[in-house]
Nucleic acid binder design. Structure first.
Lengths: 237, 237
DNA sequence: GATTCCTTTATGTCTGGACATAATAATTAT
DNA sequence: ATAATTATTATGTCCAGACATAAAGGAATC
């Protein structure tokens, strides 16, 4: 059944967002301009203040607007657009390309935390850690080399875990809660060992991601992930 | 004046978020578990459904929860935590380290879009583009080399712009609206020219960011940003 | 057995009103 | 003049209730 009178459609917060974005784009509201307050906008758009508020709040979260109490809302001159990177599991990343995923454990050892790791994770001298080296394949070609360190004190059960078939990343994600993550990307030259594992020429550039994870001030794990040739980390927003 | 009876504090949506997170961490609600519905939670926490809704909505946005109508809300087993990268202006990035920022224009030319760019931006054959090469310094050491292409059809005023003192990034941000961005990171070997500009050894690894910008299906600009030795892109969440 | 239709349920959103809070402006006391 | 106090204002949050909507399950029909 079709509506005879389509009229009286309600204004949604998404409508408001669109309208506001349009006005910013067409410079009705230029950068650094103070825009009308929520009450006025609500009247103009024919909706409640809560609806306007949600629209504006989200635009502020996205970095488009800058809001302050009493002062009002202004168009951000330098939209420090925050790029959202979805960091998937290696398995998902590989399978998303249609390739077959395979995992292999290269080495596994329990040892005293080396000094550089102690410094990085703020561990005490006698801390014991589990050190794993793993390889992740896409269609049998090396895709990612994982150099993983787990703080045994924070995750006692890790000593009993079997990492021969399930990667440490997947195991940790399902077993260990965490509150804080530091992630950093860089470009590095492959050393001999890494070149070997990833089938690269020595000193070829490697895209590296390093991730450190805490559970409330308590370091859980550090991982250095080195990606094979031609890897790109991409996002759209 | 101090309150004699502190009692009857209201439950805020932030309180709810904290409580829910705690329960997920201590495995009261294990991964993949279905958690109570909003009405029940509102009753339990002593607040309205809207308050619970906001808390849950935000946790879902953060990738912690997975919500579906009728089905309910469940704890995400593989928290595909989305890392938010704040991509700052080069100037801000340099000045944040306490270093002095300096900008230099290396070259500027108007030309027909080369084939690789036409393919990338989906431009027609006779499209004209402005091609800029710029260098950004931190304390007089090269920090970033910018290889910038601007679609003149989308930004006619760019031909008159003077890029000798202000970088194209800052100019574009303040002058040209955009709706979509594609950003990608990779590791590459420096070619001779790039090594020259960034004071690197030939074929040394370079961290590269490529950004393409559109205004509603209309390509605006493409930039390849190459960073100097030791650059790291870091985020915490 | 398969398809269509209806019911149920949990989330998604809007309303209009209320009070809280940060930040500025105006006023008063020092 | 300067400092302390008091409005004023726009955003931030909460509430109770209402209707919309997606999705699942069951019932009636083909």
């Amino acid at each position: 059944m079709n509506k005879a009178t389509p009229a009286a459609e309600k204004t949604t917060y998404q409508n408001v967002k669109q309208s506001v974005l349009r006005r910013i784009r067409d410079r009705t509201w230029a950068p650094d301009t103070l825009i009308p307050n929520e009450v006025d906008l609500a009247r103009e758009f024919g909706c409640s203040r809560s609806t306007v508020n949600r629209a504006m709040r989200e635009l502020a979260e996205e970095g488009i607007l800058d809001r302050k109490r009493k002062t009002g809302t202004r168009v951000n001159a330098t939209p420090v657009r925050n790029a959202k990177f979805v960091i998937p599991l290696v398995r998902d990343e590989v399978e998303a390309t249609g390739a077959a995923y395979r995992y292999a454990l290269v080495s596994r050892e329990v040892l005293q935390a080396p000094p550089w790791l102690r410094a990085r994770l703020n561990l005490c001298e006698e801390s014991r850690v589990l050190h794993l080296n793993c390889l992740h394949f896409a269609n049998n070609a090396p895709f990612q080399f994982e150099d993983r360190w787990v703080n045994i004190m924070a995750v006692p059960t890790v000593e009993q875990a079997d990492f021969s078939t399930l990667g440490p990343n997947e195991w940790l994600l399902s077993q260990v809660p965490f509150t804080d993550v530091e992630l950093s990307f860089s470009a590095n030259a492959a050393d001999a060992r890494l070149a070997d594992f990833l089938a690269l020429n020595p000193s070829e550039p490697v895209f590296t991601a390093e991730r450190t994870t805490w559970l409330k001030d308590r370091p859980v794990t550090f991982a250095r992930l080195s990606f094979g040739r031609g890897y790109r980390m991409t996002t759209r927003y």
